[in-house]
Design a protein around this nucleic acid. Structure first.
Length: 1153
RNA sequence: GCCGAGGUGGUGGAAUCGGUAGACACGAGGGACUUAAAAUCCCUUGCUUUCGGGCGUGCGGGUUCAAUUCCCGCCCUCGGCACCA
C-alpha cells in the first residue's frame, strides 16, 4: 500500500503542536513594516463544548485571517470568553456547582477544542470577562460614565422575566416573551441603573454611513433606533366650561372713599338635571340679576356654602358639586343692599341638580329673587342685559388648570423652574457658597418642612433664597420627579413664568444663571434635574400643563385634526385630574389599561378610549376647540405621548373616530394619479369619492378619473369644508396638495405645507426616537458587580478606583428568588462597612453581560496592562476592528451597545476611535441535514469532533467555507455527502504530489494564474465558496495534464494553505524549512493568463448557434466573412438578409437576420 | 402594514460592468477496475422532442441586437420594525 497516503489524524495534531511551539501566530503590537489588520470573531460563550456553529464562526473567518496574514498584513485574530451570564449560573444551580469553577473548567476544555480547528488565534492575548483583571476595567468605565452623567439611577417600569427572575433589556424581549427562556415578561417597577444610550441616538444613526457594513445590517439598526423626523405642534389645553367674574369695579358699582370690606363668596352655577340650562336669578328688590351667591362663613367649606345656598335660596334640594374652580377672583363693587364697598374673593362652583325635588322657599327668600332656567348658550347674553348692574360676568377666560398630584407621602422636596419674560430659565449658582457643593448650578428649591405642602415650600424657598414673593397660585406644577439618588423619594417641580428680576434680595453666596433651554444641557456642573429636563423631559417643562405638544410626521394635515389623544400614562392626565368632570369614568379606563400587559395591548387591536370631559384643546391652525381623549393606542414612550388625531388622513385615527363618531375633516387631496391607482384607500366601505374644492389638478386627468369613479362608485360630490358626512367617511393617507386649510397653505404640497404650518403655529421641526435608555441592572449573581455603595441615607457613591476590582463575593447562595443574590453575601456587606463605614451598604445588582462584551475587543490589544484598560498608542494602531464576524442575532443588541460604548468612551476622551467596527459580516446558520435548526430533540445535531475524526479538521473547515457564500447570511444545511466531496478534493491534491514533472504545459500555467487571480478576488469578497470551486477546477485540470512542476505545486499549496492549513503545511515542509503560513500569498501574472486566441460564441438573433476561434485584433470584415462561410451559420442565414453584425470584442458576436 | 434581502436543475449553489444560464460540489444513472465490497477512474445528468429543434432563472408586461442582470405591475419566502403618530 501507498504509505504516503493523506491521513489527517496523523498530521493535524503534529502541526498544531509545531505552530504552538514555534509561536508563529503571536502578533506584535508595534510592527512598522506591515499594516495592521484586526480580524475579529465574536468571542465564545463557555458553554462546555464546541458545536458546528463554533466551527462556522471561528474556522471560516480564520481562512480570511490567514489569507490576510499571507498577504502582508500584521493580522490580529484573537479569541477570548464571554464568561459571565445566566446560562452558567443556571447550569451551576442545576448541578449544585460553583459557577466560577464550572466556567473556568469549561474554558480550559474549550480552548483545547478550539485548537483542534487549526485556527490561528494568538492565545497569549486571551482573557475571560469574568477575570477580575478584566472586569476591573468594566467597573472603571462604569465609574467614568457615572461621574460624567452617562448613567443614571431611576425607578422605571422594567421587563421582568418570572422564570429567569431578572430584569431584561428591551432588546431581550421578543414579542412579549423572554428571549432566553420564552416565558412571558411582566412589567415591574424597579430602581435601575440606566445607560444613556439615547444621548447618542443621532450619532449611532448617522455614523452608520461611515461604516462598510452590509446595507441590511445598517437598516436594521436604523429601524431599531427608529428616528423619525416630524414636527412638534403645541396644543393649548383649557377648561371647556369655565366661569369667572370680572375683576374691575363698574362705574356706579364702587364708591370712592368708602371703606372696603373683604368677603369670601361663592358664585354657584346651577345646571338643570336633564336640560342644558342654567338657573339664573332675578333679584326682586334691586332688580339685579345673576347667579346664586353667598358668603363663606368662618369654618365653612366652599362646598357646604354652595350646597346650602342652593337649597335655601332656590329651594332645590339635591344639588351635587360638579367642580369648584380653583382660581378665585377679586372683585371690587358697591353692595347696594348692604351699603358697603366690597372686595369679594369669588370661588365659582358648578353644581348639577340630581333631580327637581323642590321645597317652598322661606318667605324672605321668595321676596328677594325669582329664578329662571336659561339655556347654556344664552347665559352670557342674559348676564349682559342692560339692567344687569352686578359687576361680575361669565367670561371666557380659559386656562386656569392646576394640579393635585404635587404631593404624596414620599414627596420630600420642591424645585422651581423660573422662567423669565425673555423665555430663559433661572438657576442658582453656588460658586461663592462654601457650605454647599461648590460651582453646582442647581434649581431653586428645598426640602419640605414638617406639615408643609410643596407649594408652601416653594413659596418659602423663593422668599428665602431669592427674596422673591410669589403666590402659591402662581406656581404651575410640572412633574413629580423621583430623585436620581433615591428613586423612591420625590420632589414636586414647579414652574413660575414671567418673573421680573428687578428687586431681588439674593441669599449670600448664591449667584444667578439665566439660560435658554438649549443651553441647559451643556452648562458646566448643571445639576441633574436641569439636565434631565433639558433633554428628556424638555417637553414637560415647555408644555407646562396647559399646553401639550404632539409629535407628528404629517403636520400638513393639522387643519384636519379634529381631536387629540393622550396616552393613558401621560402626565397631563394626572395633572389636570381635578378639571376632568368625568374622572370616575377616566379612572376606570386607566385602571383597565394598567391591567393589560404590553402584550395584550399589542394583541387586542380593537381601539378603546375615553373622552376627558371638562377640558378641550385648541387646534392651533384653526383656533377651534377640539375634544381631548385618552386611548391606549397612543404610546407614552413615543414622541410626546400625545397625538393630534386626523381621521381623514390616518388609519388608526380613522378607526378610532369611526368607533366614537368623531369628525373627519379632509384636508389633503392626493394627486390624481394616486387616487386612480389607489381605490382601496377607501377604508370606510362606503365607496365615497371626494371631489374637493380647491382642486388644482389638470383637467384632463381629473375628468378621466371622475368618469371612471362615477361608473364604479357613488360620487359624493363637492364638499366645501372637507367635513365628511356620517356614512361617507374614509381615510386617505397619501400625500398631495393641501385643501380646506388656509390661504397660506391651500394648494401647497404636503411637503411644503409641513414646514409652513409648523412655523405658522409656533411648532418646531424635530426628531423622535424609538430607542430607549439601556437598563443594565440584573438581579443575578454571575455578573460584574456594579461598583456602587450607598451611604446610610441611601445615597449612592461610586467605589473609588483604588478599590477596583470590586470583586464578586464567593459566599453567596444564588438560588433565584427574585431578590439579588449579592444581598445575601456577608463578606460583601463586611467589606463595604470596613472600607466606607458603618451603615454603608453595597449595590447588590450585577451588570447585564452585554456590558462585558461592549468593550472586549480593546482588551485583546493589551491584555496584561494593569494600569490602563489598554494603552492609547496600541489602541491607535489597531482600532477600529477591520472585519468583525458574528451572528445576525446581535445586530440590534451587542452591535448597538458596543457602538454606544465606544462613542461614550470617545466622548470622554478615553479612546480615539468613534466606532468599534469598520467592517462587519453577519454569518448564516448551519442547519441539520434535514434542513431544520440543529437541536438535540430533533436528533439532527452534528458533532464536529466526530466528523473531524473521520475526515480531518481541514475538510471540515473547507466544507463550511464551501457550503455557501459567507458574505450572505443564509441558512445552509449540513450535508454529510458534501463533506466527502471536499475530502475527495484534498485527496486529489495530496495525490498530485506523485505527478510532479520537470516542465508543464502552457495551459496549466495559464490555469494556475487564473486560479490565483480568482482566489484573490473571491477571498477579498469573502466568497470563499467560489474560491474553493476555482481551486477544484484547477486540480481537475492538473490531474488530466501530463504533470505539474514543484514550483507550481508549491504555489497551489500556498493558495490552499488558508483553507487547509495542516495538509498544506505537511506537503510544504517536505521541501521547505519554514512554515507555509508565514510565506507570501502568490501573485498572478496577467500575461500568463491570456493567450492571443479566444473562442467566441456566435449568436443568431440572440440565440447561440456556433463558436469561432478569434485572434486578438482581427478586423470585423474578415471576421464577418469567416463567420458567414461557416456551415453551422449558413444553416441559419440561408435565404435571409443580414441586417446587423454586432461584435463585442472578447465577449460575443450577434447576427441579426 | 412599513423597511430590507431574496426567489436559478433532484440538492447546496455559480454567472464580478446587459454578452455562451446552470461553474464547482452533492445526489442519481451507466461503465471500468475487483472474487466481492470500499476506494478510485471514465461517461451521462435543466425540461422536452417527431432528434431539425422548442422551452427554460417566481408570474405578467416593457426596454435592447442581446435580460438571471435594467424598467413597470404583481406573487411568494426569509429577516427587521410594527397601534411608532
Amino acid at each position: 500500500m501507498n504509505q504516503n497516503e493523506y491521513n489527517p489524524s496523523d498530521i493535524e495534531k503534529k502541526w498544531q503542536e509545531y505552530w504552538q511551539e514555534h509561536n508563529i501566530y503571536a502578533v506584535e503590537n508595534n510592527v512598522t513594516d506591515k499594516e495592521n489588520f484586526y480580524a475579529l470573531s465574536e468571542f465564545a460563550y463557555p458553554s462546555g463544548n464546541l458545536h458546528v456553529g463554533h466551527w462556522y464562526a471561528f474556522a471560516v473567518p480564520d481562512i480570511y485571517a490567514r489569507y490576510k496574514r499571507m498577504s502582508g498584513y500584521n493580522v490580529l485574530y484573537p479569541m477570548g470568553f464571554d464568561a459571565f451570564g445566566l446560562p452558567a449560573e443556571n447550569a451551576a444551580i442545576k448541578r449544585g456547582l460553583d459557577p466560577r469553577k464550572w466556567t473556568y473548567e469549561n474554558m480550559d476544555y474549550m480552548r483545547n477544542q478550539l485548537r483542534s480547528m487549526g485556527a490561528s488565534f494568538d492565545w497569549s492575548r486571551s482573557f475571560a470577562t469574568c477575570d477580575p483583571e478584566y472586569y476591573k476595567w468594566t467597573q472603571w468605565m462604569f465609574t467614568q460614565f457615572y461621574t460624567n452623567d452617562l448613567i443614571e439611577r431611576s425607578l422605571i417600569k422594567t421587563n421582568w422575566c418570572e422564570s429567569c427572575k431578572t430584569v431584561l433589556a428591551n432588546e431581550q424581549v421578543v414579542s412579549g416573551e423572554c428571549e432566553r427562556c420564552g416565558n412571558g415578561v411582566i412589567q415591574k417597577d424597579m430602581a435601575q441603573w440606566m445607560l444613556k444610550i439615547t444621548k447618542f441616538a443621532d450619532a449611532l444613526y448617522d455614523d452608520l454611513d461611515t461604516l462598510d457594513w452590509d446595507h441590511s445590517i445598517k437598516q436594521a439598526q436604523r429601524e431599531w433606533i427608529g428616528r423619525k423626523e416630524g414636527s412638534l405642534i403645541p396644543f393649548k389645553i383649557q377648561e371647556s366650561e369655565m366661569y369667572d367674574v370680572n375683576t374691575g369695579p363698574g362705574d356706579d358699582a364702587f364708591r370712592q372713599g368708602e371703606p372696603i370690606v373683604d368677603r369670601d363668596n361663592v358664585v354657584v352655577i346651577i345646571e338643570h338635571p336633564e336640560k342644558d340650562e342654567f338657573l339664573c336669578a332675578k333679584w326682586k328688590q334691586v332688580d339685579w340679576q345673576g347667579f346664586v351667591t353667598g358668603g363663606i362663613e368662618q369654618g365653612q367649606s366652599i362646598e357646604e356654602t354652595a350646597l346650602t345656598e342652593v337649597r335655601e335660596e332656590t329651594g332645590y334640594q339635591n344639588p351635587e358639586i360638579v367642580k369648584i374652580y380653583n382660581q378665585s377672583s377679586h372683585g371690587l363693587f358697591w353692595h347696594v343692599h348692604k351699603k358697603q364697598n366690597r372686595r369679594a374673593n369669588y370661588r365659582i362652583v358648578h353644581v348639577r341638580l340630581k333631580d327637581l325635588e323642590h321645597i317652598e322657599r322661606r318667605q324672605e327668600e321668595q321676596e328677594i329673587a325669582d329664578f329662571l332656567w336659561i339655556p347654556r348658550s344664552e347665559v352670557n347674553d342674559f348676564l349682559k342685559r342692560e339692567d344687569m348692574k352686578y359687576p361680575w360676568r361669565v367670561v371666557n377666560q380659559k386656562n386656569n388648570l392646576t394640579s393635585q398630584v404635587e404631593q404624596n407621602e414620599n414627596t420630600i422636596g420642591a424645585g422651581i423652574f423660573i422662567k423669565t419674560k425673555e423665555g430663559k430659565y433661572v438657576f442658582q449658582k453656588r460658586d461663592n457658597n462654601p457650605e454647599r457643593a461648590k460651582g453646582i448650578t442647581a434649581l431653586f428649591g428645598g426640602g419640605l418642612e414638617p406639615n408643609e405642602t410643596t407649594r408652601q415650600t416653594a413659596v418659602r424657598e423663593l422668599r428665602e433664597e431669592l427674596g422673591l414673593e410669589v403666590l402659591e397660585s402662581d406656581l404651575k406644577f410640572i412633574d413629580l420627579q423621583n430623585h436620581f439618588d433615591n428613586p423612591k423619594k420625590n420632589s414636586a417641580l414647579f414652574l413660575i413664568e414671567g418673573i421680573n428680576f428687578e428687586s431681588l434680595k439674593l441669599k449670600e453666596g448664591v449667584g444667578l444663571v439665566e439660560l435658554f433651554i438649549d443651553e441647559i444641557f451643556d452648562y458646566p456642573k448643571m445639576g441633574k434635574f436641569g439636565r434631565l429636563y433639558a433633554t428628556k423631559k424638555r417637553s414637560l417643562l415647555e408644555n407646562s400643563f396647559f399646553e401639550t405638544k404632539v409629535f407628528t410626521t404629517r403636520a400638513d394635515t393639522l387643519f384636519g385634526a379634529t381631536y387629540i389623544v393622550l396616552a393613558p400614562e401621560h402626565q397631563i392626565v394626572q395633572n389636570i385630574k381635578s378639571q376632568i368632570t368625568n374622572w370616575n369614568e377616566v379612572e376606570d379606563y386607566l385602571k383597565e389599561v394598567e391591567k393589560k400587559s404590553d402584550l395584550d395591548r399589542q394583541q387586542s387591536k380593537e381601539k378603546t378610549g375615553v373622552e376627558l370631559k371638562g377640558i378641550e384643546a385648541i387646534n392651533p391652525a384653526t383656533g377651534k376647540p377640539v375634544p381631548v381623549w385618552v386611548a391606549d393606542y397612543v404610546l407614552v414612550h413615543f414622541g410626546t405621548g400625545a397625538v393630534m388625531a386626523v381621521p381623514a388622513h390616518d388609519e388608526r385615527d380613522a378607526e378610532f373616530a369611526l368607533k366614537y363618531d368623531l369628525p373627519f375633516k379632509f384636508v389633503v387631496l392626493p394627486s390624481a394619479g394616486e387616487i386612480g391607482n389607489s381605490r382601496p384607500l377607501i377604508t370606510s366601505g362606503e365607496n365615497a369619492f371626494i371631489l374637493a374644492a380647491g382642486t388644482t389638478e389638470q383637467k384632463g386627468s381629473q375628468e378621466h378619473i371622475n368618469a371612471e369613479w362615477n361608473a364604479m362608485y357613488d360620487v359624493l360630490g363637492i364638499i366645501e369644508d372637507g367635513l365628511l358626512p356620517v356614512g361617507k367617511r374614509f381615510c386617505c393617507t397619501f400625500e398631495g396638495k393641501v385643501i380646506n386649510a388656509s390661504g397660506d397653505v391651500n394648494t401647497k404640497t404636503s411637503e411644503e405645507a409641513r414646514n409652513i404650518i409648523t412655523k405658522m403655529v409656533g411648532g418646531e421641526i424635530t426628531k423622535t426616537y424609538r430607542l430607549r435608555d439601556w437598563g443594565i441592572s440584573r438581579q443575578r449573581y454571575w455578573g460584574t458587580p456594579i461598583p456602587i455603595v450607598y451611604d446610610p441615607e441611601g445615597n449612592p457613591h461610586v467605589v473609588p478606583e483604588e478599590h477596583l476590582p470590586w470583586t464578586l463575593p464567593d459566599d453567596v447562595d444564588f438560588t433565584p428568588d427574585g431578590t439579588a443574590p449579592l444581598a445575601r453575601s456577608e463578606k460583601l456587606k463586611k467589606r463595604t462597612e470596613e472600607i466606607f463605614g458603618t451603615g454603608w451598604t453595597p449595590e447588590v445588582d450585577t451588570m447585564d453581560t452585554f456590558v462585558d462584551s461592549s468593550w472586549y475587543f480593546y482588551r485583546y490589544l493589551d491584555n496584561n496592562n494593569s494600569s490602563e484598560f489598554v494603552s492609547k498608542d496600541i489602541m491607535q494602531s489597531w482600532m477600529p476592528v477591520d472585519m468583525y464576524f458574528g451572528g445576525a442575532e446581535h445586530t440590534t443588541m451587542h452591535l448597538l451597545y458596543s457602538r454606544f460604548w465606544v462613542k461614550a468612551l470617545h466622548s470622554l476622551g478615553l479612546v480615539p476611535a468613534n466606532e468599534p467596527y469598520q467592517g462587519r459580516l453577519n454569518r448564516g446558520l448551519i442547519l441539520g441535514p434535514d434542513g431544520a435548526k440543529m437541536s438535540k430533540s430533533k436528533g439532527n445535531v452534528i458533532d464536529p469532533d466526530e466528523v473531524v475524526s473521520h475526515v480531518g479538521a481541514d475538510t471540515v473547515r473547507m466544507y463550511l467555507a464551501f457550503i455557501g457564500p459567507f458574505n450572505e447570511p443564509g441558512n445552509y444545511p449540513w450535508d454529510p455527502n458534501g463533506v466527502v466531496g471536499i475530502r475527495r478534493f484534498l485527496d486529489k491534491v495530496w495525490r498530485l504530489q506523485d505527478k510532479k514533472t520537470e516542465t508543464s504545459s502552457e495551459e496549466l500555467v495559464s490555469a494556475l494564474h487564473q486560479t490565483i487571480k480568482k482566489v484573490h478576488e473571491d477571498i477579498d469578497r469573502l466568497k470563499l465558496n467560489t474560491a474553493i470551486s476555482s481551486m477544484m477546477t484547477f486540480i481537475n485540470q492538473a490531474e488530466k495534464s501530463d504533470g505539474i512542476t514543484q514550483a507550481e505545486y508549491d504555489i497551489f499549496l500556498q493558495l490552499l494553505a488558508p483553507f487547509a492549513p495542516h495538509m498544506c503545511e505537511e506537503l510544504w515542509m517536505q521541501n521547505h524549512s519554514t512554515s507555509i503560513h508565514i510565506t507570501d500569498f502568490p501573485e498572478y501574472d496577467e500575461s500568463k493568463i491570456s493567450s492571443g486566441m479566444k473562442a467566441l460564441p456566435i449568436q443568431i438573433n440572440g440565440k447561440v448557434r456556433a463558436q469561432i476561434i478569434v485572434e486578438e485584433g482581427e478586423n470585423n470584415d474578415s471576421l464577418q466573412n469567416r463567420i458567414l462561410e461557416m456551415p453551422e451559420v449558413q444553416k441559419w442565414t440561408e435565404g435571409k438578409v443580414i441586417k446587423k453584425f454586432i461584435h463585442v470584442p472578447s465577449k460575443i458576436i450577434n447576427l441579426v437576420i
